[in-house]
């Protein structure tokens, strides 16, 4: 626990010093969102209709891209090698990374969600559902993109490869998150979708850290 706390502190310090790591994904998210009305057309009715999908596609792309360089520096400087060689600590490191990744990419998305609601013409109720789906869904996005970063850590080709292997795994999340928002927009019950999102979150929380640890070990191996 002491180890975990100091790892969290280290990660937060790094984030505080390298602001681009969490600011760029946020700007990217807003930029992608503003591209859609320009490409599709600004009619408020249509925007409102496609908003759930838009927000979620932009969110998953920005979270995915932000994770790309997550382990690169630690790998290059030998931090991960030391953790793998050590008896414990690798698992704490993995969970600390995941927590901080969510804090630095998922939470900002939730915080700017009122702005999104204004941009896409969502009303207060739709915005509330959007926030709930983001709260339940962005941790899963972080977990999976950290897994992608861990898998491709020592690979010669990064970037696109990580997107290629992780994007298919995002599909269930995209379906249920935008499904919940669509159901809410048409005044249908949406608690079922939210329950499924919560189930995804618990499932991913239980399994993904183990897979990440294994992936890091293999990459150093």
């Amino acid at each position: 626990m002491v180890m975990w706390r100091s790892l969290i502190k280290r990660e937060l310090q790094l984030l505080g010093r390298q602001k681009a790591d969490w600011l760029n994904p946020l700007v990217f998210f807003l930029l992608v969102l503003s591209l859609f009305p320009l490409g599709i057309g600004p009619e408020p009715g249509m925007l409102k209709q496609i908003a759930p999908g838009l927000v979620w596609i932009a969110a998953l792309l920005s979270v995915l891209l932000s994770a790309e360089r997550l382990f690169k520096d630690d790998y290059r400087y030998g931090v991960i090698e030391q953790l793998v060689a050590g008896r414990e600590g690798l698992f704490s490191y993995v969970t600390a990374k995941i927590c901080c990744h969510w804090l630095s990419t998922g939470v900002p998305l939730i915080l700017v969600s009122p702005l999104i609601a204004v941009l896409l013409g969502l009303n207060f109720d739709s915005w509330q559902v959007l926030v709930v789906t983001l709260v339940l869904g962005t941790p899963v996005l972080s977990l999976l993109s950290v897994l992608g970063a861990a898998l491709t850590m020592a690979a010669d080709k990064g970037g696109i490869l990580q997107a290629l292997i992780i994007l298919p795994l995002y599909i269930p999340l995209l379906i249920f998150a935008s499904g919940a928002m669509e159901a809410a927009a048409t005044a249908l019950p949406y608690t079922g979708q939210l329950a499924v999102l919560l189930a995804f979150l618990l499932f991913a929380l239980a399994l993904v850290p183990l897979a990440v640890r294994q992936a890091l070990r293999m990459n150093v191996g």
Partner: peptide
């Protein structure tokens, strides 16, 4: 993923995961 590593054995392990 299997083809992305200069060390082929490592690529296969990661791809298996």
């Amino acid at each position: 993923l299997a083809g992305a590593f200069s060390e082929a054995a490592r690529g296969i392990k990661v791809a298996s995961l």
